[in-house]
Deep mutational scan, measured.
Amino acid sequence: TTVEVQGVEYRFDNPEEAEKFAKKMAKSLNLRVELHGNKWRVE
């Protein structure tokens, strides 16, 4: 599972970890998070 934060990609073996990371990043950067296939995008 991939998390893309403002163009930078982070890879996770565990989808739940990816989701937690994406939501945490979105909250700290005041952005929103969307799931596209198996990629979380924070923008």
Rank of each mutant, 00 (worst) to 15 (best):
N30H: 09
S28H: 13
T1Y: 15
L29R: 04
L35R: 13
V42R: 00
P15M: 08
W40G: 02
F12H: 01
H36R: 12
K20C: 15
T2R: 08
E17V: 08
T2F: 14
D13V: 09
Y10I: 05
M25V: 10
P15E: 07
R41M: 13
V42S: 04
K39N: 09
R32F: 08
Y10G: 00
R11S: 09
R11D: 06
V8M: 10
S28M: 15
D13P: 08
K23F: 12
V42M: 05
V5S: 03
V5M: 07
W40T: 02
V42C: 15
T2S: 10
V8C: 15
E16K: 10
V3A: 03
K23W: 11
N38V: 05
P15D: 07
E16W: 12
L29S: 03
A26S: 05
Y10N: 01
K24D: 14
Y10C: 13
E43V: 15
K23T: 07
E17F: 05
R41I: 15
A18Y: 01
V42T: 05
R41E: 08
L31R: 05
E43C: 15
A22C: 06
E17N: 06
E4N: 09
N38Y: 05
R41Y: 15
K23P: 00
A18H: 00
A22E: 01
F12N: 00
G37W: 03
F21M: 02
F12G: 00
K39A: 08
V33L: 12
E43D: 13
V3L: 02
E17I: 08
R32D: 06
A18Q: 00
S28I: 15
T2H: 07
N14W: 07
M25D: 00
P15S: 09
V3W: 02
K27C: 15
K39S: 09
E16G: 10
S28G: 07
L29A: 04
G37R: 04
V3N: 00
E17K: 07
Y10R: 03
M25N: 03
V42P: 04
A22F: 02
A18F: 01
R11L: 12
V33Q: 03
N30M: 06
M25I: 12
V5E: 01
L31F: 07
R41F: 15
D13S: 11
N30R: 08
M25E: 03
E4S: 12
K39Y: 07
V8S: 05
E16D: 12
F12E: 00
K20W: 11
W40E: 02
G7H: 05
E19K: 06
A18M: 01
A22W: 02
G7L: 03
L31C: 15
V8Y: 08
P15A: 12
P15R: 08
K24N: 12
D13L: 09
G37I: 04
A22V: 03
S28F: 13
V42E: 04
A22H: 01
A22P: 00
E9Y: 07
G7T: 03
G37P: 03
D13W: 08
A26I: 01
F21W: 07
K23G: 04
N38P: 06
T2E: 06
T2N: 05
L29M: 07
V42H: 02
E9C: 15
W40N: 02
E9Q: 08
H36A: 09
V33I: 12
F12C: 14
E19C: 15
R32N: 10
G37V: 04
G7D: 04
R32H: 12
G37E: 09
F12V: 01
R41Q: 10
N30T: 03
N30K: 08
R41L: 14
E43M: 14
K39M: 10
E17Y: 06
A18V: 00
K20D: 12
F12D: 00
K27I: 13
T1K: 06
Q6K: 09
G37Q: 06
K27D: 12
V3T: 01
E43P: 06
E9H: 07
L35W: 13
K24C: 15
R11V: 13
E16R: 10
Q6W: 11
A18S: 02
K20I: 13
E4M: 11
Y10F: 11
E9P: 06
H36M: 10
T2I: 15
Q6R: 11
W40Y: 07
H36F: 11
D13I: 09
W40D: 02
K20F: 10
A18D: 00
L29T: 03
G7R: 03
E19F: 10
V33E: 04
K23D: 05
E4W: 12
L35N: 07
E4Q: 10
E34T: 14
L29W: 03
F21R: 00
Y10E: 00
E34F: 13
